[in-house]
Amino acid sequence: MQPHALFEDMQKRIADLYAASPAKDIEKNLKALLQQGFNKLDLVTREEFELQQQLLERALQRIAALEARIEKLDSQS
């Protein structure tokens, strides 16, 4: 048996043992518990955060452009 095949076989056997063990149930229950806890918190996803960050950046750019325009109009008066 080649080393690569040996490692694949060993990995498959370990994965099968893990799937059949109580550890898999503990992991599933822990994930569900954590997900439930996170759902109770007022959190946003990374995508939502990045979208809001982009919107804020655009708003700040528009504010800066409007301030420059106001200054230009004030200097013309």
Rank of each mutant, 00 (worst) to 15 (best):
D16K: 14
A32E: 10
D25S: 08
G37A: 07
Q61N: 09
L73S: 03
A59F: 03
Q52A: 04
K28V: 06
N39R: 08
R13Y: 13
Q54N: 03
K72T: 13
D9E: 12
S75I: 11
S75F: 13
A15I: 10
T45S: 01
Y18S: 04
S77M: 15
A19W: 11
Q35A: 04
N39H: 09
L33Y: 13
L41R: 04
S75P: 02
S21G: 01
S75D: 08
D42Y: 02
A15R: 07
N29K: 10
F38S: 04
A15E: 07
K31F: 07
Q76Y: 13
I14Q: 05
A19N: 12
A32R: 12
E48G: 01
D16V: 13
D25G: 03
A65R: 06
R69D: 06
M10N: 11
H4C: 06
K28M: 06
Q35K: 11
L6K: 15
Q52I: 10
L6P: 01
R13M: 11
E50K: 05
F7K: 11
A65G: 03
A15D: 06
R13S: 06
L6N: 15
Q35G: 02
M1Q: 14
L73G: 02
E27G: 00
L60Q: 10
K12E: 05
S21A: 01
R58M: 02
N29F: 05
S21C: 02
R13L: 08
G37R: 12
D16L: 09
